[in-house]
């Protein structure tokens, strides 16, 4: 159909107003919620990010001042440390580093566990145990990590003592250059439950006769994984990866519980969510900055969310 024809068809088309009204009525509740809680705050932040703020009072238009101040704030990006790769590097690089480590690790681990559990007796119990981490509130995870890494009572240090590495015993969450990795490990534990569950259901959806057929065709375990299992669970991988990325972008409670509002000693594992919270709700209130940081987060999350939403 040519453009002209399409236009004609649409212009001439009889609009069924009654139907349109009905559709509108049904859409209204959802759209209202979506508007009030999603689009509204986003638009408000976009506008607000160009204004000066006195606590929660909007002041004069300041153009890009909030943006330039935020992007040069060492708490958001510490360029010198970033180039030297020493912590603190600022919330944005730290958040992205977290993502780079967390997503592949939790994805691969989830897949490995799902494959491992697939043919085991008692797989339901094992799956439940692993998934338990994902169902636990993230604040609790943060507190648990505090205990795990505690120098006296912590399991991790106890383990080091048991294997004779007493020299390594320390308060891991207070070590500026290591602390973030310790927290990432905790996050991976949480997210692995989720990716394992998705992979498990994807694996369960593979017809066993396909794998038997591949065995008869001569494929060993590795070829069966590469040629049959992996291509068939690939769509799930996209979901796991993107959900993982969004999860890390929104991360807050683990960091807050483990390191307080500053995000560890000298902000060494501060993340974007924490900076939004600090800018908006601690003295001095920097509402404009909070909006800018939240918008930066949104800029990363939006395309990911759009990709997931458009998937078949």
């Amino acid at each position: 159909m040519s453009i002209q024809e399409t236009l004609d068809a649409n212009v001439d088309a009889d609009v069924d107003w009654e139907k349109a009204r009905a559709i509108l009525v049904f859409l209204l509740p959802g759209l209202t919620l979506f508007g009030v809680f999603s689009v509204g705050p986003m638009a408000y932040s976009v506008v607000g990010s160009f204004f000066a703020w006195d606590a929660f009072e909007m002041g004069a238009f300041v153009g890009l001042q909030n943006w330039s101040e935020t992007l040069t704030d060492p708490l958001i990006i510490n360029w010198d440390n970033l180039l030297a790769f020493t912590f603190p590097m600022g919330a944005l690089p730290q958040n992205l580093l977290w993502m780079v480590l967390h997503v592949p690790l939790s994805t691969v681990l989830g897949l490995v566990l799902a494959l491992l559990f697939a043919d085991l007796r008692g797989k339901r119990i094992l799956r439940s145990l692993v998934f338990l981490g994902f169902t636990t509130p993230t604040v609790v995870i943060g507190l648990v990590l505090l205990f795990v890494y505690d120098p006296q009572a912590g399991v991790f240090n106890e383990l080091l003592r048991v294997v004779g590495m007493e020299g390594q015993v320390r308060n891991w969450l207070q070590e500026p250059q290591i602390a973030i990795y310790c927290l990432v490990a905790g996050g991976v534990w949480v997210q692995t439950g989720f990716s394992m569950l998705l992979y498990s259901s994807a694996l369960a959806g593979i017809d066993p006769s396909l794998l038997e057929s591949a065995r008869i065709d001569g494929a060993g375990p590795f070829r069966r994984f590469k040629d049959i299992i992996w291509p068939l669970v690939k769509p799930v991988t996209a979901v796991v990866v993107i959900m993982g990325m969004i999860w890390v972008l929104r991360i807050f409670a683990i960091v807050y519980a483990a390191g307080g509002p500053s995000g560890g000693p000298n902000h060494v594992y501060s993340v974007l969510g924490l900076e939004v919270f600090r800018a908006a709700f601690s003295i001095p209130v920097e509402y404009g900055k909070a909006m800018v940081v939240a918008l930066i987060e949104l800029m990363f999350a939006l395309p990911l969310a759009a990709y997931i939403a458009r998937m078949d």
């Binding site: 017809d207 006769s209 396909l210 038997e212 057929s213 065995r215 008869i216 065709d217 494929a219 060993g220």
Partner: peptide, 14 residues
């Protein structure tokens, strides 16, 4: 199975 050099046709074709 691969060492037996058999070929199998499954009920659901696989």
């Amino acid at each position: 199975p691969s060492d037996r050099n058999v070929a199998m046709v499954f009920q659901n074709y696989a």
